[in-house]
């Protein structure tokens, strides 16, 4: 019963998937390609590419796509594939939903307890570090190109980067408008 297997697999991935989307992708790959043979490595690579390019968290995108592909590859019709998507997405969210509810309740109750406050005093500066790290990790040739590989794309990318910073910090442009504008710049200039 592929739906049950999908549910079980993605429930485990949701339960043990620490460290965000990219860490999850290697887990999904292990289960879906190596363990269950639901699809080929090539198909999985395509799924990852689409998951990164489409809106939404990468973990949700890949769960949705894998659920669909696994069922259709097993000979299911399209509507059965959609059911597979729903199963995988629901299963991957369920563990953290339950856990986060418990933690939220606890946190809201003990927010002003001295121990909790002190722990968060240490956590807050560290989270700023996480945000900075997320940004540094994204400064890759894949996202910006390189001066030697494609000077045009590199310098336009730098201009987009600086322009976005100024638009957000100085002119308080909304992130959504900035994104749409940069997509348009990409279409026109690249």
């Amino acid at each position: 019963m592929i739906y049950f297997q999908l549910f079980y697999t993605f429930f485990l991935i949701g339960l043990f998937g620490f460290g965000g989307g990219y860490a999850m992708i290697s887990m999904i790959q292990g289960e879906v390609v190596t363990n269950h043979h639901w699809m080929s490595m090539g198909e999985f690579t395509d799924i990852v590419a689409v998951s990164q390019m489409t809106p939404g968290p990468i973990g949700i995108n890949s769960a949705t796509y894998v659920g669909y592909t696994a069922v259709v590859n097993a000979g299911g019709a399209h509507w059965m594939g959609i059911l597979g998507s729903a199963t995988a997405t629901f299963a991957v969210v369920l563990p953290s939903f339950i856990l986060m509810l418990v933690i939220s309740k606890f946190l809201m109750q003990y927010k002003h307890h001295p121990i909790v406050e002190h722990v968060f005093m240490g956590l807050r500066p560290a989270v700023v570090g996480l945000l900075a790290a997320a940004c540094l990790l994204l400064m890759t040739p894949e996202n910006f190109s390189t001066p030697s590989e494609s000077p045009w794309q590199f310098w336009i990318s730098i201009a987009i980067f600086v322009g976005t910073l100024i638009a957000c910090q100085v002119y308080k442009l909304s992130p959504i408008r900035t994104l749409l504008f940069c997509a348009l710049v990409g279409i026109l200039l690249f």
Partner: peptide, 10 residues
Amino acid sequence: RGIRPCVVAL
């Protein structure tokens, strides 16, 4: 290609 550097800045 336009969106990626924008996301990093965001």
